[in-house]
Simulated assay, not measured.
Amino acid sequence: MEHLPTSTRGRGAVMLAIVAVWAAAYWVNGWVWDRLLDAAGMDPEARLTESLHFFLYDTVKIALLLTGIIFVITILRSYMSVERTRALLGGRREGVGNVMAAGLGVITPFCSCSAVPAFIGFVAAGVPLGVTMSFLIASPLVNEVAVGLLLTLFGWRVTLAYVGAGLAIAITAGWVIGRLRLERHVEPFVFETRLGGQVIDSTAGLTFDQRIQMAAEEVGSILRRIWPYLLVGIGVGAVIHGWAPEDLFTRYAGPGAAFGVIVAVLIGVPLYSNAAGILPLVEALYDKGLPMGTLLAFMMAVVALSVPEMILLRRVLRPPLLAVFIGVVATGIVAVGYLFNLLLA
């Protein structure tokens, strides 16, 4: 049996150790903050404690996710030529790539903020912008967590409606953005590949060590660029967390409210959560009599169009493209909300 060289075994051991440390940090993140805030004598039921815990927990969680996702995607991207990647997800027929990307988003259940580095990697690897947008929308919006919880709480009819609408929004919005040809409004650094601080034209012929170095540099580069936006975004979510205005919902988005869906979307945008985090509130509001379409639109706005995600995306998208993204997705969500209020009444 042929043995691996010592250097290869050593690199493998180092990589396994790094993965183990990363996994352990991610696993104990919530537990650590629970214990520290408890040791500080803070009431776990107080709104201030909830907001502080949200900020600390999500800052570490998102930083770990960003680090891992950027690192892995950079290495994978180094093996994919622009032409090969474009052929894989671009599709020969317009719209095929959007469907494939939305499907990929379903099986990669990132929250909205952690989907951003995957978005960067896809665009940098030559995937058309509109196709990548379909992934960016579908990943937080439709995944097995959302499907499982919706099925348990509201049954198969509501679940199928939500999944179908989420995929339709992701595919249609990505197709529309692709047709507008807005690539010039993506920040230039997204398209650059660097090694040793220098922009390189091709990753062909790089050694594995060089690809690891490139991935580590990419992690540092992107985190340096986006960390202020990340902290501000999570901070916005933390301030609002635990202060969800249920009374405002019942007053302005209740049964018979003509602008209820629009109000629900406007309330949902500043919040930051994933499907698992927002569904208990959706269930509570449903018990108060709010229409299902209004609640599904609210949920979609929270998980796919939150202010923290927009703050993070602003670092990689220029204002015209960001405005188009918000407008197209918000229009789709509002339309779905009103449609479901008719169909699911």
Rank of each mutant, 00 (worst) to 15 (best):
I69E: 12
W33C: 01
L89E: 00
L37S: 07
G41Y: 02
L76A: 12
P140N: 08
P280W: 04
R35N: 12
P291V: 11
W31H: 12
N98T: 05
A46S: 15
W33P: 03
L48K: 07
W227K: 08
Q198E: 14
L136A: 12
V82Q: 08
S306E: 02
V14L: 15
S273N: 11
L182I: 11
M42Y: 02
T193I: 11
L4T: 03
V316F: 06
V186L: 05
R9N: 14
L290V: 12
V236A: 00
A345I: 10
L266W: 02
V302W: 01
S114Y: 05
V316C: 14
G155F: 03
M1R: 14
V329F: 06
A165H: 05
M15A: 14
L65E: 15
L295N: 12
F208H: 10
S7T: 14
A115H: 02
V123D: 01
L180S: 09
A23I: 11
I311T: 07
E246V: 15
A323Q: 08
I171K: 10
I222G: 11
T85D: 07
L129A: 05
P270G: 00
E187V: 11
E183T: 10
S78M: 03
E192N: 13
G41N: 06
G293W: 05
E192W: 07
L88F: 14
Q213P: 08
V106D: 01
V145A: 07
G95W: 01
A101K: 07
V19K: 01
A216G: 09
G268Y: 00
P291I: 12
E94V: 05
T159K: 09
R224P: 13
P319S: 10
A323M: 12
P44W: 00
S112M: 01
H53T: 01
I171S: 10
E218R: 15
L206G: 08
G178V: 06
V123S: 03
W27V: 09
L343V: 14
L312V: 15
F191A: 14
V263M: 00
R194G: 11
M214I: 03
V261R: 03
L89F: 15
F55D: 01
S78K: 02
L296D: 01
L136D: 04
I69G: 08
G256K: 06
V147R: 02
A275E: 09
L129W: 02
W227M: 10
C113V: 11
G256H: 06
V21I: 15
V269F: 00
R179H: 09
I69N: 04
M100V: 13
F325L: 10
A101P: 10
S134P: 13
I333M: 09
L150K: 08
V14Y: 00
G254P: 11
T74I: 04
